[in-house]
Design a protein around this nucleic acid. Structure first.
Length: 314
DNA sequence: AAACGCCCCAACCGCAGTATC
DNA sequence: TGATACTGCGGTTGGGGCGTT
């Protein structure tokens, strides 16, 4: 048996809200609150609307202190940085922009900001990126069709790193992590990119070997280095990690909590990502700090959907 | 002035997560 | 413990407005 519909579809009004409906909804909520039950609210308020529709109308338009109109440069910067950091988590981004709704930000991103951002480099002038032995200059480039792309699904934005030492073969290897996705390792060949699967190994220049083991099911990440075997704490399901090899091929784990935003952190000397290192309550100042930190990384890439492929720009 | 195409944004839809029974 | 109810979220759509031809 499937789920019962939230409302009687045949008897609810759809489409744009009239000023009268707005007034009814506003008046009802200001008098009575939502009562924690949107489903029954329209009936009580005398509206022929679905509860979901009422909720959306209230949250996106009618509730107090909603800010409409142009976004400031600061807001642009916050959106860009958070999008680069956590992807299309609009509600989280909206939480950092008082008065803005997730829908607003989503629309703004899709219609203006993305174009503004990509518009910095005209499409005709974008060229395939050449790989360099530098952690901050890596993109997946498919030589066969001359596009940047990732074979993994659900990448909305990721930070990738490249290391010639991150492989036990002669071919260079790349690791990438994404929002809600595990680190993926890719072998780079002249003909394109081969995904290495859920578990990959690497050899460091110091002779030690580290393994990153991914469990897609429970989104746990384990790190082992010699006799150290440490589960890196997953504070929430949507953490993502990017692994960067520094000059000495020592591991620097870039960890970002999708909800609260870490920027790059050296793995603590005790090898533990403890609770104390997890900034769970970022305020605006911390977000600003995050922005300044991540801006300096300058290694974010974005994609645009083009038919069935994801094309990367940066 | 009409036709056309593009852009923008409000609203809808479906799904996942959580609460409740 | 499973079924159902409800909420919240992100992706998508559709229609109005506006600019261009």
């Amino acid at each position: 048996m499937g789920r019962a519909p939230c409302c009687d579809k045949a008897n609810v009004k759809k489409g744009p809200w009239s000023p009268e409906e707005d007034a009814k909804l506003k008046e009802y909520i200001q008098k009575n609150g939502t009562g924690g039950n949107w489903i029954s609210l329209p009936q009580k308020a005398g509206l022929r609307r679905c509860g979901k529709s009422c909720r959306l109308r209230w949250l996106n338009y009618l509730r107090p202190n909603i800010k409409h109109g142009d976004f400031s440069d600061d807001e642009d910067r916050i959106i860009c940085t958070l999008f680069a950091s956590i992807g299309s988590r609009w509600s989280i981004i909206a939480a950092q922009l008082p008065g803005r709704t997730d829908n607003d930000i989503k629309n703004y991103w899709n219609t203006k900001l993305k174009k503004k951002l990509f518009g910095r480099v005209p499409q005709s002038q974008r060229k395939p990126h050449q790989f360099h032995h530098s952690p901050s200059s890596t993109l997946l480039y498919n030589c066969s069709n001359n596009t940047y792309h990732t074979p993994a699904t659900s990448f909305s934005c990721f930070e990738a790193s490249y290391s010639s030492s991150f492989s036990n073969t002669s071919a260079p290897c790349l690791s990438a992590s994404s929002i809600l996705g595990p680190i993926q390792h890719y072998q780079l060949h002249d003909s394109g990119v081969q995904m290495l699967g859920g578990e990959a190994s690497c050899s460091s220049s110091d002779g030690s070997c580290s393994n990153i083991q991914i469990s897609n099911h429970n989104k746990e990440l384990e790190y082992s280095n010699g006799d150290h075997h440490q589960q890196i704490g997953m504070q929430s399901y949507n953490n993502f990690y990017s692994e960067v090899a520094d000059d000495e091929s020592q591991k620097l784990i870039m960890a970002s909590n999708g909800d609260h935003g870490w920027s790059g952190q050296q793995k603590p000397s005790n090898g533990l990502w403890g609770e104390t290192e997890t900034p769970l309550d970022y305020g605006i100042e911390e977000i600003k700090q995050l922005i300044s930190t991540t801006s300096s990384c300058n290694s974010f890439v974005f994609y645009e959907n083009k038919a069935d492929e994801k094309v990367m720009y940066y």
